[in-house]
């Protein structure tokens, strides 16, 4: 689904290679937040490599037109650590934004949104602006937004960071069920915290060190 081939980015990646295959669950541990955020930007085509190749859904990113890149982004559900919500949109508008932007038939999705929010333990108002919400609630809203798009691949950015054990359990259960819902759906967990591996049942675990990915046993 996402493949890096001898990717180079000055001061960050040094001929790094990584493959997240169809249906797999991968985890990548980075040493710093900065590295993690940069990886997220590379995987979504926001930051271009100096050299080397990155394939998204089998196609090289540099060969994408802007529209093609956006079409590929639509197929990736991203759950940023800060939720990635737009501050001048209400929580429900944020959750529905990609769906209502990309598809015209989203009228029956309100119910689905509320179901997902209930499953992951979001108990706040959806008609409020996201500003005053704690970071983890914004992230839960971001999780619901990504799931509503029914993507082929999910990227979770420190998704369990700061969650209570109760909400973490609910989120984990929903994420696991969501992974199995669609055949071939892949998940990539990015984190800086080693302890996150206690919750993630990953097929492959990589560590990014000195510009290269090292697979753990």
């Amino acid at each position: 689904m996402i493949t890096l081939e001898c990717a180079n980015l000055r001061g960050f990646l040094d001929c790094a290679s990584l493959a997240v295959s169809k249906g797999s669950v991968c985890a990548v541990l980075t040493e710093t937040e900065f590295e993690k955020n940069l990886l997220l930007r590379i995987f979504t085509g926001l930051t271009r490599l100096d050299s080397g190749k990155i394939f998204i859904f089998g196609q090289e990113v540099s060969s994408f037109s802007y529209t093609e890149l956006n079409n590929a982004r639509k197929r990736i559900g991203i759950v940023p650590n800060n939720g990635g919500l737009v501050s001048n949109l209400k929580v429900w508008e944020n959750i529905m934004l990609p769906l209502s932007y990309h598809s015209s038939s989203h009228h029956d999705m309100d119910e689905k949104m509320m179901t997902i929010l209930g499953k992951i333990g979001y108990d706040d108002s959806v008609s409020a602006l996201p500003g005053p919400l704690p970071a983890y609630k914004k992230r839960l809203a971001g999780l619901a937004r990504a799931m509503l798009m029914e993507p082929d691949m999910m990227i979770y950015d420190s998704v369990f960071d700061g969650l209570s054990s109760d909400i973490r359990g609910k989120a984990l259960e929903t994420i696991t069920a969501f992974q199995q819902e669609k055949e071939g759906r892949a998940s990539l967990f990015l984190d800086t915290d080693e302890s996150a591996l206690n919750y993630i049942k990953a097929n492959n675990i990589y560590t990014l060190k000195k510009g290269k990915f090292y697979e753990r046993n």
């Binding site: 997220l40 926001l46 590929a72 990635g84 932007y101 990309h102």
Partner: peptide, 25 residues
């Protein structure tokens, strides 16, 4: 101020990650 704040807080990059073209939206 609105666009500046959105840009500084990474919201515009976040919108792009959703496959939404900021020029259009």
């Amino acid at each position: 101020a609105e666009l500046g704040s959105m840009n500084a807080q990474g919201e515009i990059a976040g919108i792009e990650m959703l496959g939404i073209d900021p020029q259009r939206y």
